[in-house]
């Protein structure tokens, strides 16, 4: 069936099986392979993209459910020549090794920083009404939907803290 998607500010018309996940649509139909498949079951976060600014596991949603949606993938956040602040911080802090979980981590972190700005609390926030701070514990908690088997976690925390311009806490 036909679905109209706006991906990284470009309009696409997708012609695909109704069973096609948003992830497979990106990877197999649109050639946007920056978004990774680690599990296909919402268990790893490698497929994280932004839909209308919110992070989502693209393997857990069908492409045909997103007619008219604005989707941002890792390719929309920066290029090797013009990396986003987070992308550059990941390179400098070595926030990855094999790089396979990395686009998901960066998409997730991009949205996560907005969530913090918007004042969303997390499981580890002491005060649900206060503005959340960007402590290591808050970053670790909010990023735990993105697995990294290379286990770059300490460097991912450093990279996110750097990109957000805050000191260690």
């Amino acid at each position: 069936m036909q679905t109209k998607l706006t991906i990284n500010a470009q309009a696409h018309t997708l012609e695909a099986d109704t069973r096609t996940t948003l992830l497979d649509a990106l990877r197999f139909h649109l050639g946007l392979t920056g978004t990774k498949k680690g599990c296909d079951h919402g268990q790893c976060g490698a497929c994280t993209v932004l839909i209308n600014g919110r992070r989502i596991n693209s393997c857990l949603t069908l492409a045909c459910m997103h007619d008219g949606d604005e989707i941002t993938t890792i390719e929309g956040l920066g290029t090797p020549e013009a990396m986003s602040t987070l992308q550059r911080a990941f390179v400098e802090q070595d926030g990855f090794q094999c790089g396979y979980c990395t686009p998901g981590q960066i998409c997730s972190a991009t949205a996560m920083l907005d969530e913090i700005k918007a004042g969303w609390p997390s499981h580890v926030s002491d005060d649900l009404l206060a503005d959340p701070d960007l402590s290591d514990i808050e970053i670790g908690e909010r990023m735990s939907g993105n697995l990294c088997r290379c286990s770059a976690y300490p460097n991912i925390v450093d990279a996110i803290r750097d990109a957000a311009g805050t000191d260690s806490a």
Partner: peptide, 13 residues
């Protein structure tokens, strides 16, 4: 690194 963080490093599949 810049290829990996921008999704432009091409893996097997």
């Amino acid at each position: 690194g810049p290829l990996k963080v921008t999704g432009t490093a091409t893996y097997a599949h």
